[in-house]
């Protein structure tokens, strides 16, 4: 009989195990072995994660499931720029308050996105993980920027 280890668990079970973890523990798991890395870095996993957490969690994501899944603006996209669609780039630029009127080509949009990337952030991949990490970190922020203050409709 072959030895069963915890490694043999299929993806769907790993997903339900990982859904109990927080961000740091999840990153630790993703370094443990290749399969776990594969599961924990997958875009579909983060989508599923979002679904589980926003539906029946007592964390701050609770009840947010009505909101569409959107990429976070305060995130360094330099590593994953090629996986983003035009629509996603436009929405991020819009949230970063960068005018996109004159930008017609995708390459121009990409350049605008790269130029406005926050340089102090680490470039994560794939896109939903990057966005998720940015959102988690942003939630700990205590100061509001000048731009946000000026553009918020009170």
């Amino acid at each position: 009989m072959t030895e069963t280890t915890i490694k043999v668990l299929p993806r769907e079970i790993l997903i339900s195990i990982f859904s109990y973890l927080d961000m740091k523990e999840l990153l630790n798991c993703s370094e443990a072995c290749q399969l776990w890395n594969n599961v924990a870095n997958d875009n579909s996993f983060y989508k599923k994660f979002w679904y589980i957490w926003s539906h029946n969690s007592n964390r701050r994501w609770k009840g947010k499931w009505r909101m569409a899944l959107e990429l976070h603006p305060r995130c360094n996209y330099s590593r994953i720029i090629d996986t983003l669609s035009v629509k996603e780039i436009k929405s991020v630029l819009k949230k970063r308050l960068i005018p996109i009127k004159g930008l017609l080509e995708k390459s121009e949009l990409k350049k605008a996105l790269l130029d406005s990337d926050p340089k102090d952030q680490i470039a994560y991949f794939p896109k939903w993980k990057a966005s998720f990490v940015a959102a988690e970190k942003d939630s700990k922020r205590t100061a509001i920027t000048k731009e946000e203050l000026c553009t918020t409709e009170w």
Binding site: E3, T4, T5, I6, V8, L9, I13
Partner: peptide
């Protein structure tokens, strides 16, 4: 853990 994995499966 190997038995636990069997039980989960």
């Amino acid at each position: 853990f190997n038995i636990m994995a069997d039980v989960i499966l």
